[in-house]
């Protein structure tokens, strides 16, 4: 059950990154005034991104409360890989082999940092 909730948190936090990127490109590019930025935060993309962050973080903290960090963190490192896959396949960004290798190292590093 906890694992399912953690996977859901990973999905929400990754989705939030994609939504933030889409929102930044569509709603924020070229905008300079603070008022324009505040208005943009209520656009569908960025509002959804914020909801995903809040729910994802809440879920993450709720599970962390009942679970060892060392067991939970490998799931968080998954986010790095999922965001990279989403950048490549949803946003159609070019991702070099070096970058994939770097992301794999980062994911391994995050797992080690959380281990006891």
């Amino acid at each position: 059950m906890n694992d399912v909730l953690l996977l859901l948190a990973v999905a929400l936090l990754s989705a939030s990154q994609v939504l933030q990127k889409v929102g930044a490109t569509r709603r924020l590019a070229g905008k300079q005034k603070p008022a324009e930025w505040i208005a943009a935060l209520f656009s569908p993309e960025l509002a959804a991104a914020i909801v995903c962050i809040v729910v994802g973080t809440g879920l993450w903290l709720a599970v962390l409360y009942r679970m060892d960090v060392s067991r939970a963190f490998p799931f968080l490192s998954l986010t790095t890989v999922v965001v990279m896959a989403a950048s490549r396949f949803l946003l159609r960004e070019p991702v070099s082999l070096y970058r994939w290798a770097g992301v794999a190292l980062i994911a391994a590093g995050i797992t080690l940092v959380a281990s006891t």
Binding site: G102, I106, G109, L112, V113
Partner: peptide, 13 residues
Amino acid sequence: VGTLLILAGVALA
């Protein structure tokens, strides 16, 4: 070691 791996990964990425 984990933080060093992250640093290496960031540099590579």
